[in-house]
Design a protein around this nucleic acid. Structure first.
Length: 569
DNA sequence: GCCGTTTTCGGCCCGACTGTTTTCAGTCG
């Protein structure tokens, strides 16, 4: 059983307990345990010493025992029993915005409603508002919530929300009452998917800002409007929350509004240990505010160095900060080139020269042209002859360009029989070889793992592109043993790509962290099919930062001469 | 259910907004 599956079961347990009205701290314990497991860089099933499970943060004897039962038998009696209880079906209701455990229990207890369909019908017929504690408004909210769930099932990709949220931020920034402003929440932490956008601003006239905010042209619906906090749904169909605090609280509020929730709980509880109350307005000793203007002040009040937003998941960053062992994360400005881009020679939209110029304009020293190989017929993959021609063309362009280098490369297909789609004779002539799986995703884990390892072992291959093949929200990763892949990379001094294409982000943050632990280099590449796609590098860097990656872990932080030396051609 | 050089029992982060209420419960982050 995978970590993902175990985590999902623990969350489901917490949801059932929640509706049953169990102790909230017990419910939180299951959620915390699930988060710990989701953040692990290794599979629990591969753990030799299962006694270590109970030593994981937030996991004690009780949950550890349950996890072991899941690992050993594939089942958990406690969970199976829980699923048979009458409230178990109601967890579906918790996905509906505005509906929590209390309302879920209420509609079941009083009306016997246990499916979303029945709930919708009852709301339409006006039977919910008759219940004690519910009214007209709640009934309408539930109806709207059901429609939302049906319309927007999943969280949206970071790269979709980010520019749109940035647009709204720019609009709000124009209000003259606004002093400071930033994107907060999971957007600031750069999670790969986003449920809603959080924006934080400081002002001495919060109510005026609220008024202007809900009247933005982007607003489709106003979900909530208060004195300091409002929520809208944009025409693009995602929710934006704006919170306004006084300028002297901006740092405290930035920290609070950035989260994660688990990180905040730890920080506030560390404050409480020192007799300090930490909230979004500041750090308070008794009634007296002792900090709050900047985020640094908040961390300092509990003797911690600044923790970058991307690390704030309570996945070890607080301990690392306490021990002064925080990584110095890679930054966008340290990227010196893009080592996986396409051109109009295959399925890209721009010429080699245009891509090179765009890279040069970004301040890069180099770019690697990696068009597809023949097996990728639909992409206009290059034949061996055309690849030879492309090498010559790149040579011509390089003589023309000053202070910039175009590397000739390929994204060669790893065929299902594990053969590469080009002969070694031509691969040898290239500056860089990126290999990738594009077909037969359904292969059994063993075969797929062997298939990729064979490519890693080819001396001409430098990089494995998008190593798990996932498309966020669209396609699950193919079955592959990433531990074995990483070990093969280590043994052969090969590099794993973090593909920054918005729907890929593959390697994931967790895999990055694993790769770092194993001492494997990664390369952050955009897989750009247009010059403007080079911009996506920022989402790749963000994902790497979430994976605790430092500049020395990343191939394309090398200068051109260092890179050529590394490639050794 | 977890956790602990104050503790193995008694704590467990903190506040805004909404709606249905006559002072607060529920939801959300």
């Amino acid at each position: 059983m995978t970590n993902q599956e175990i985590a999902r079961i623990l969350v489901h347990i917490s949801e059932i307990l929640n509706i049953q009205g169990e102790n909230p701290f017990k419910i939180r314990a299951y959620i915390k345990a699930s988060q710990t497991i989701e953040g692990l860089t290794y599979e629990l099933s591969s753990l030799e010493d299962k006694n270590k499970i109970a030593k994981l943060p937030g996991i004690g004897g009780g949950i550890a025992k349950k996890i072991m039962e899941l690992l050993e038998t594939g089942e958990l009696k406690y969970y199976e029993e829980l699923k048979k209880t009458e409230y178990a079906p109601l967890t579906e209701f918790l996905k509906i915005s505005g509906m929590g455990p209390k309302h879920a229990k209420l509609v079941y207890d009083k009306l016997g409603i246990k499916t979303v369909e029945e709930l919708k019908k009852a709301a339409e017929e006006g039977r919910l508002k008759a219940l004690h504690g519910l009214g007209e408004k709640v009934e309408q909210n539930i109806l709207r919530g059901i429609q939302q769930v049906q319309k927007y099932k999943e969280r949206l990709p970071l790269a979709f929300i980010y520019p749109r949220a940035q647009n709204i931020l720019e609009e709000v920034k124009k209000f003259k009452e606004v002093k400071q402003i930033l994107l907060a929440g999971s957007l600031r932490r750069m999670r790969e998917t986003i449920a809603d956008a959080d924006i934080l601003a400081s002002s001495d006239h919060a109510e005026k800002v609220m008024e202007a905010f809900v009247n933005l042209p982007q607003t489709d619906k106003v979900v909530a409007k208060g004195k300091t906090k409002s929520s809208i749904v944009t025409r693009d169909g995602f929710q934006v929350d704006l919170r306004v605090v006084p300028p002297e609280s901006f740092g405290a509020a930035s920290h609070y509004f950035t989260g994660s929730k688990a990180h905040n709980i730890r920080i506030r509880s560390l404050g409480a240990d020192k007799g300090l109350k930490i909230n979004e307005y500041g750090v308070f000793k008794k009634e007296k505010r002792i900090a709050g203007k900047t985020e640094e002040e908040i961390f300092k009040s509990i003797n911690l160095p600044y923790i970058p937003p991307e690390l704030r998941e309570d996945q070890g960053e607080i301990e690392a900060a306490q021990n002064r062992k925080l990584p110095s994360l890679i930054e966008l400005k340290e990227i010196k080139g893009d080592l996986h881009v396409h051109t109009d020679w295959s399925d890209g939209n721009n010429s080699i020269e245009e891509m090179a110029q765009a890279a040069k304009n970004r301040g890069y020293q180099y770019i690697a042209i990696c068009d597809h190989s023949p097996a990728m017929g639909i992409t206009g993959g290059l034949t061996q002859e055309r690849l030879q021609k492309q090498i010559e063309e790149i040579g011509r362009l390089n003589r023309k360009l000053k202070g910039f280098k175009i590397l000739s490369g390929t994204e060669v297909d790893i065929r299902s029989n594990s053969q590469l789609d080009f002969e070694d004779e031509i691969l040898e002539k290239l500056d860089l070889v990126v290999a990738a799986v594009h077909t037969k995703f359904g292969q059994p884990k063993e075969e797929m793992t062997k298939r990729i390892i064979k490519a890693i072992e080819n001396p001409n291959v430098d990089i494995i592109a998008h190593p798990t093949g996932r498309l966020i929200g669209k396609r699950e990763p193919y079955q592959v043993d990433m531990d074995k892949i990483m070990d093969a990379c280590k043994a052969n001094a090969k590099v794993l790509e973090l593909n920054a294409y918005p729907e890929r982000l593959d390697l994931s943050d967790i895999h990055c962290r694993r790769a770092k632990e194993k001492g494997i280099k990664i390369v952050i590449s955009t897989d750009a099919h247009m010059d403007i796609h080079l911009e996506w590098i920022k989402f790749g860097v963000a994902t790497a930062r979430r994976g605790w990656i430092e500049p020395q872990d990343v191939l394309n932080t090398l200068t051109l001469s260092q890179l050529l030396k590394f490639l050794g051609r």
